[in-house]
Amino acid sequence: MASEQGKLRYALVVLGAPYSQAATHSALRFGEALITQGHRLDTVFFYHDGVYNTSRLAAPPQDEPHLVDAWVRLANEQGTELLVCVAAALRRGLLDEREAQRYGKPAFSVEPPFVLAGIGQLVEAGITHDRMVTFAP
C-alpha cells in the first residue's frame, strides 16, 4: 500500500534507446512530473534497447540534453533505483566493472548508480510498486 494517502510508489520500465527514440524523454518527463506531484519514483528498470540509457561513455553534443546524466541526477536526488537487465545489457556491450573482468573485456561501460539486475527484479517491480508505467520505442 502507499505510505501516505494518495501518494503512490512508481516503477518505470524503459525499453527505448536514448537519442534514437522518444521513450527516454517521455520517461524522464513523466518521472519528474510524478515527483512534483508528491509521488515516489522508486525504481527504473532498463530492458531491451533501454539498456543503452546506462552507458557511462555516452558523449552527446553540448546543445542536447544529457540523458544518462539526467538518470544519474534522479538517483542522486530521489534515491531512485536504476536497474539494468543484465541479460539485455551484456549482449549489447553494457558491462559493469565486474562483468568486464569476468568476460576479459578491456573496459566497462556501466557504473553506479546503474546496477545490473535480473529479470526477476522487473517482475518484482511490477508486483511491489503501486504503479508500473512502460516507455517503449
Binding site: Y47, H48, A87, A88, G118, I119, G120, L122, V123
Partner: peptide, 8 residues
C-alpha cells in the same frame, strides 16, 4: 525478451 519475462 517477452518470453524471458514470462519464464522468470
Amino acid at each position: 525478451e517477452g518470453l524471458d519475462v514470462a519464464l522468470v
